[in-house]
């Protein structure tokens, strides 16, 4: 089951896309492709296990942040 905070949008702020893209309503931003698999619970990934934003929300009752993007570099 996908994360309850996941939405699909074509537009937010200055960003605009042809296809609806994964958008995190907690962090208020479009999410990275790799994170979208977590948001959608694909490939055995799970939002309630692997997403620090979701887990931060669960911990503090809301208001998690997405200031920390993936710091491990690309996906060569």
């Amino acid at each position: 089951m996908a994360c309850p905070y996941l939405a699909y949008r074509t537009q937010a702020g200055d960003a605009q896309f042809d296809e609806p893209r994964a958008y995190c309503t907690v962090a208020d931003r479009f999410v990275q492709a790799m994170r979208a698999d977590i948001c959608n619970d694909r490939y055995g990934l799970a939002h309630d296990e692997h997403c620090e934003i979701y887990l931060g929300c669960a911990d503090d009752g809301g208001g998690g942040t997405d200031q920390r993007r993936d710091r491990s570099g690309g996906n060569p």
């Binding site: 893209r21 479009f30 990275q32 492709a33 993007r69 690309g74 996906n75």
Partner: peptide, 14 residues
């Protein structure tokens, strides 16, 4: 040339 990748996408650079 690593053209597209699989982590970030157009949300990082259109």
């Amino acid at each position: 040339a690593a053209l597209t990748g699989g982590v970030h996408g157009k949300e990082a650079n259109p």
